[in-house]
Design a protein around this nucleic acid. Sequence first.
DNA 1: CAGGTGACTAAAG
DNA 2: GCTTTAGCCACCT
Length: 105
Amino acid sequence: MYAVVRRIPRGTVATYGQVAALAGAPRNARFVGFALHANPEPGVIPCHRVVFRDGSLAPGFAFGGPERQRTLLEEEGVVFVPPADGVNAGAGGWRVDLERCLWRA
DNA sequence: CAGGTGACTAAAG
DNA sequence: GCTTTAGCCACCT
C-alpha cells in the first residue's frame, strides 16, 4: 500500500478511496489515512498527493497547512480550482481538479 | 500473537 | 440540506 502511495506520479493526486482500491481494499479508505499517519517512511511518502474524495486533503495534517498544500501541488503541476463562491475563502475551499489530476493507474 | 486504531466513504435520520 | 451513524481492514503498539 505504501508502494501504491509512492507510485502516485508527480503532478497527480489520488483519493483515499483510489489508493485504497489500488492497495486492494476498496472499503478501507479510512485506513489509508491511518497508514500514512503512522508514516513509517517520512519524506518518502507524498501524503500531500493523497486527497479526499472532494479533492481536498485533511486540514491541519499532511504537512503543516492548507496553504502549503496548494503550493506543493501547484509546484508539481496539479490544477487547483477556486471555490465556486465569489468570495474567496483564502486557502479554504480550494480543491484539486480530480477530473484532470486524479491519478489513473 | 492479539488488540486497537484510523487523514474515509456512503447512506440514513 | 445538513448532520450523524455504521462499516471497513490492513498497519501499529
